[in-house]
């Protein structure tokens, strides 16, 4: 996978790494068992401090997406085909999504446009699981 970091962004670098790895798993670019470079190697390649990479990897491990093993290094732990999420994840995620949607609504984005953007994003991941609900299904 390609990691492309914006050094002038407000988003912290560890966050950018974490986000891009999650996106790569969603897009199927990384699947369960895919290896990732060690924190030192990746830090070297990006020319950044290896603690920054460590922080990103740590978060991914915490989220159950990465398995960090002293022997085999960092390995992707799950992908869309690995079955249902851990219990509790859906609720926690729904909370964050609610905040994200609230931002959109508060800024006056049109509900249909928001839904279309969600659909496009899911399409981008090419999961095939994306099912864009019709207007009628929405309450």
């Amino acid at each position: 996978m390609i990691l492309n970091l914006d050094l002038s962004s407000e988003v912290p670098i560890y966050q950018q790494i974490r986000d891009q790895v999650v996106a790569a798993i969603a897009a199927g670019e990384l699947v369960a068992g895919s290896p990732l470079p060690s924190t030192r190697q990746l830090a070297g390649d990006l020319g950044i401090n290896f603690h920054t990479v460590g922080k990103a990897y740590d978060q991914l491990r915490h989220e159950g997406l990465l398995l960090i093993n002293r022997k085999s290094g960092a390995v992707v732990r799950r992908d869309p085909r690995s079955g249902p999420a851990e219990p509790g994840f859906a609720e926690e995620w729904a909370g964050r999504m609610r905040t994200l949607l609230a931002e959109a609504v508060a800024q006056g984005l049109d509900a249909a446009a928001v839904l279309a953007a969600c659909g496009a994003a899911l399409d981008d991941f090419g999961t095939g699981a994306a099912h864009i609900p019709s207007e009628g299904e929405l309450q």
């Binding site: 996978m1 990691l3 492309n4 050094l7 962004s9 990732l36 390649d45 020319g47």
Partner: peptide, 13 residues
């Protein structure tokens, strides 16, 4: 300009 750095993990793996 937005300055960035890039890496391809597959070059390592």
């Amino acid at each position: 300009l937005r300055q960035g750095v890039a890496a391809d993990t597959s070059l390592r793996t």
